[in-house]
Amino acid sequence: MSKRIIAWIAASLVIAGILSLFASSHPDGFEKAGEETGYIEHASTLLPAPMPDYSLPGIDSWISSSISGLAGVLITFAVFVFFGKRLGRKTR
């Protein structure tokens, strides 16, 4: 893997693993608008996820969200490359 790819993954890990701990915990624009107009009350959860709301269930600490962020970056890269290599055209 080239150096520039590693550099981008490293930067992404820092953002998702550390910087994300300082992110605003206020509702985002969609949730805020939903609170103001009422539609957010209908929200429900159908499928339990392994790391709901970017945290590890049962671990109540910053480490929980930090690990979720790191895992998300690696999963995203791995999934894209896995499928991309199968979809893409072999050239040069």
Binding site: M1, S2, R4, I5, W8, I9, A11, S12, L13, I15, A16, L19, S20, A23, S24, S25, H26, D28, Y54, G69, G72, V73, L74, T76, F77, A78, F80, V81, G84, K85, G88
Partner: peptide, 18 residues
């Protein structure tokens, strides 16, 4: 593919920053 994967990973990370 790897550079697009790296961009996907970066966008995932950046979306965590509210």
């Amino acid at each position: 593919v790897p550079m697009m994967g790296a961009m996907a990973a970066f966008i995932f990370a950046a979306q965590m920053i509210n």
